[in-house]
Amino acid sequence: MADMTVEEVMDRYGPSEVRVEDILRPTDPNFEPETVALVTGAASGIGWATALALAANGLSVVGMDLDTEGVESVRERAEALDAEGRIVPFEGDLLSESDCAAAVERAGEAGELRYLANVAGLQHIDDIREYPTEQWDHIHGVMLRAPLLLTKHAWPHFEAAGGGVVGNMCSVHGHIVTGGKVAYNTAKFGLRGLTASVAAEGAGRIRSFSVSTGWVKTALVAKQLPETAARRGTSVEEVVRNVSLGHTRLKELLEPIEVGNLFVFGFSEHARHLNGGDLLWDGGMKHTYA
């Protein structure tokens, strides 16, 4: 059995508090309160950090999540950091197309919608022969179907604004896979296909990119670690050392704000040639896997 609870794992491997100096601040004329970014999964983890980073860069951010208290917490943190932009909470279910459409409509009401960050994710660990079909459907609904729906509904707003950018939260598991995560693995490979498809149809005016990281200090990861340890009959510490960081060259977990900064860069004018491509931030895992 695992030797640490999720709470203990979060205390040890959870994210650090975000400071102003941790946030990337590129120059971009569209980074202003009249411009809107829609961020999913904004109540926690990478979505929370991405929403905060974009608000700190002056954007109005519609944070979509079922956990409105979590989104309220990022709004409070943005205010504490004197962010030039603002956080607009939106309670919505990514499994509902009407909620996805309503989130885009709310983003359009908040200003000129130019950016969409599909960050929300979840995980279930099981072998293929035992994998629950309902978990497959749920994971793909949140992580693959919803990004398509949000992109579809945001497309007219992007055209009206003269351009837009879709950023998709992928993973090193969209490049290489580990066992027990068949739904997650296939969803992440699918997101890279969606990213390329947006670029193919966007004609240079609507572009896209994905972000592929290794292990990040989030609640999603914290919940996986005891499960993985129990499944492997080992300790959480050994899972972090041998599984999470075993094949990386840089032996440290990413902070969520470091991933949020990748979305800031990807949305900015400095990344205008990033279209359909992937920002692989995996500590060297994929290219030096040994």
Rank of each mutant, 00 (worst) to 15 (best):
G58Q: 12
T234Q: 10
G246R: 10
A271M: 00
H153R: 10
E238Q: 14
D11F: 00
G214D: 01
T133D: 09
G246D: 10
L220E: 06
G204F: 02
D82L: 11
A230M: 02
P26Q: 03
H175C: 05
T218M: 07
S60R: 14
D278R: 02
S98P: 02
E130P: 00
T151R: 07
I23M: 01
V198E: 06
M4D: 01
E258T: 13
T151F: 09
R192G: 08
E34Q: 12
T50A: 12
H153Q: 06
A199N: 01
F90H: 15
A160W: 00
K152A: 07
F267E: 09
E269M: 11
L191Y: 02
H153E: 13
L59D: 06
A154T: 04
L245T: 07
V36R: 04
R129Y: 07
G163V: 08
N185W: 01
G193T: 11
R19E: 12
E252L: 12
D28V: 07
A203H: 13
V74E: 09
R25Q: 04
E79S: 12
A107E: 05
E238C: 03
G174T: 08
L150C: 11
L220R: 13
D22P: 00
F158S: 07
T5N: 05
H140I: 08
T68L: 09
D82I: 02
A43S: 15
N30R: 13
V74A: 09
A187M: 04
G174I: 10
D126N: 14
Q135P: 00
T178V: 13
V9P: 09
H270F: 03
E238V: 07
G111E: 05
T218A: 07
T248K: 10
V172S: 09
F31N: 12
V39E: 06
W215P: 04
C170E: 05
H124I: 10
N185E: 01
V221Q: 12
H153V: 06
V39D: 05
L66E: 03
A56S: 15
P15R: 10
A219V: 13
V71P: 01
L194I: 13
R249M: 13
L54R: 05
Q135R: 15
G121W: 10
V165A: 00
L66V: 11
F158M: 09
A80V: 03
R249G: 10
G214V: 05
E8Y: 00
A222D: 08
K152R: 15
M1G: 11
E8I: 01
E227I: 11
L148H: 15
S268I: 07
P89K: 08
H273C: 03
G180N: 08
T234M: 09
D67G: 04
V71R: 05
G47R: 09
L122Q: 14
V6E: 12
I125R: 11
E130Q: 11
I87C: 04
A219K: 14
P256K: 09
T68D: 05
G163I: 08
V165H: 00
Q123N: 14
L144E: 02
A203Q: 14
S268V: 04
D65N: 07
P226M: 02
E76Q: 15
N30Q: 13
E34Y: 00
E201C: 06
G260L: 12
S208H: 06
T40G: 03
S235N: 02
S60V: 10
I87R: 06
S171I: 01
V9T: 12
T5E: 10
R75A: 15
W155G: 08
V142D: 04
